[in-house]
């Protein structure tokens, strides 16, 4: 899932300090799972903002709501009857949600309340790690199910490089060498011969090198 972290409270205060009525909108999707922008975080942020502006004797009304998802029009539509009453919206959704909210309500000022980080997994509560960079052409079948694009600092297709030492990456000794992991995994699977056939250069057009991407699934369209 998408992983995000809450923006510092002072940054959000600075964004809305000159306004009078703000709606904080959470998302029940990915940001709820990583505890950055779900119902609970929306409540904590709203309460903190109310405390801040009340103690400063500043007129400020903070309301909140949480949508099932902010990356779907159907759920964004649920705001249509109330959004006009607010000077601005603070969205705790990922970058996709914030932008889609802007597209749905082009006249409304929308501020991001979280920093969207990456697509990853939960190692444990509060510890998340990147696992996919959405390159658009999955090569996991060739690499023992461990992605060199996401897990090798250099995104090498034929690793490891000379910076791999005792299974760790030269960038940071806390980062596992992706290619070391792939080697160990292929050894377990008895597929070390994979290393005898270098992989051809990857077509990065399906990744960001092809510009902003779009999927059109004709089979799903009516």
């Amino acid at each position: 899932m998408i992983k995000a972290v809450p923006k510092p409270l002072e940054e959000i205060i600075e964004l809305i300090k000159d306004l009078h009525k703000v709606l904080v909108v959470g998302c029940d999707g990915c940001v709820t799972v990583c505890e950055a922008g779900g119902l609970k975080e929306v409540g904590v942020l709203s309460s903190s903002l109310r405390l801040n502006f009340t103690q400063a004797n500043q007129r400020m009304e903070i309301d909140d709501t949480t949508l099932t998802r902010q990356c779907d029009k159907e759920y964004l539509d649920q705001l249509k009857d109330r959004i006009d009453a607010y000077d601005a919206v603070v969205s705790l959704a990922c970058g996709c949600g914030v932008q889609y909210l802007v597209e749905r309500y082009p006249d409304k000022v929308v501020y991001p309340g979280v920093d969207t980080c990456f697509m990853g997994v939960d190692l444990e509560r509060g510890v998340y790690a990147e696992r996919c960079q959405a390159c658009g052409k999955c090569i996991l079948a060739d690499t023992g199910g461990i992605c060199p694009i996401a897990r090798c600092s250099k995104r090498m297709l034929n690793g490891p490089c000379g910076g791999s030492e005792k299974g760790k990456c030269e960038v940071n000794s806390e980062i596992d060498c992706g290619w070391h992991l792939i080697y160990e995994r292929l050894k377990t699977l008895g597929q070390l011969d994979r290393f005898e056939h270098p992989v051809a250069p990857k077509d990065w057009a399906t990744s960001r090198d092809g510009g902003p991407r779009k999927i059109v699934r004709e089979d799903l369209r009516i």
Partner: peptide, 8 residues
């Protein structure tokens, strides 16, 4: 931490 940030 929150109370410190909001001046309480």
């Amino acid at each position: 931490e929150i109370l410190d940030k909001v001046g309480l």
